[in-house]
């Protein structure tokens, strides 16, 4: 018995030694000498079907796609939810539908970076399938971490705004061409510096910025520009995080509630 076991193990070991040797040889061949032959495989595989799956279940689900910058990311909220977290909670109170949220926002993103991001096929897929699209953008174009407003050079600011507006129009257009029916909520800017010495000038710039963005939004169907300027106008310090730029928990709650109040459900979907 024991003898048999031993010769079995010996045979098995010899066999496996050979197999692993083949594996090792294959590594050398594949990593060092492979060129044309294996390259064919690359064109063979990509883009298998399996894309249609998601649409069938959308009747029972509310799909929300969030894109943009740190506001959508939730920077400054100790719970990390951001306004979309509170918005989701609010919506969950109102509807029976299952809410599916994808947050693709990137901290510090400017409008020109967002244009690049929405070229990615996955982001496009999310936008395509979404019933609601949430967007914050422009804060980084305008404030650039607080430097631009210190210069307060109106010519400079006009230049940034022009660039921003043309980017914004391109973003709107791209989103609309991907998704004709979903409603876009573009959450507007507030002035984090409204209690500082130049608040008159800075508020004026932000107001104009918001006004122009709202105009651009109105040019496309179903894009809602959600104002936040008024929310932060008084008591700005109570709603800002310690970086004095991003909202804190209360600030995000305000934005979330306001945006959530704009989203309505048909009677059968209500709670």
């Amino acid at each position: 018995m024991r003898k048999k076991g031993l010769s079995l193990i010996t045979a098995l070991s010899i066999l496996s030694a050979l197999v692993w040797l083949v594996g090792l040889a294959w590594v050398l061949q594949d990593q060092f000498f492979a060129d044309g032959k294996s390259r064919q495989a690359e064109t063979m595989q990509p883009d298998t079907p399996q894309k249609q799956k998601d649409n069938s279940s959308s009747a029972k689900k509310l799909q929300i796609a969030a894109i943009g910058d740190s506001l959508t990311r939730g920077t400054g909220d100790p719970d990390g939810k951001g306004y979309i977290g509170y918005l989701k909670e609010e919506l969950a109170k109102k509807t029976k539908k299952e809410i599916e949220l994808t947050n693709s926002a990137i901290k510090g993103q400017t409008s020109s970076q967002l244009i690049k991001q929405i070229q990615q096929p996955q982001i496009q897929r999310q936008i395509k399938n979404a019933d609601v699209i949430l967007l914050t953008i422009g804060g980084n174009d305008l404030f650039r971490g607080g430097q631009a407003l210190e210069e307060l050079d109106s010519q400079n600011i006009n230049k940034t705004e022009d660039a921003y507006l043309s980017n914004l129009k391109a973003i709107y257009k791209e989103v609309r061409s991907l998704n004709k029916s979903g409603i876009v909520y573009h959450v507007g800017l507030y002035n984090p510096f409204s209690d500082m010495k130049d608040s008159k000038t800075t508020s004026g710039i932000v107001r104009k910025w918001n006004y122009d963005s709202a105009n651009a939004a109105a040019a496309q169907p179903n894009i809602i520009y959600v104002p936040t300027f008024d929310l932060f106008e008084l008591n700005v310090n109570d709603y800002l995080y310690s970086d004095h730029f991003h909202p804190n928990k209360q600030g995000y709650q305000l934005i979330g509630e306001r945006t959530a109040s704009l989203i309505r459900f048909s009677e059968e979907d209500q709670k």
């Binding site: 030694a17 197999v19 692993w20």
Partner: peptide, 21 residues
């Protein structure tokens, strides 16, 4: 520029070859 696709069984065989080594 040398990236290519291989089926998983080959990938595993290669990795085990390396482990053996």
């Amino acid at each position: 520029n040398n990236v290519h696709l291989i089926p998983q069984w080959q990938y595993i065989l290669m990795e085990f070859g390396l482990v053996w080594f």
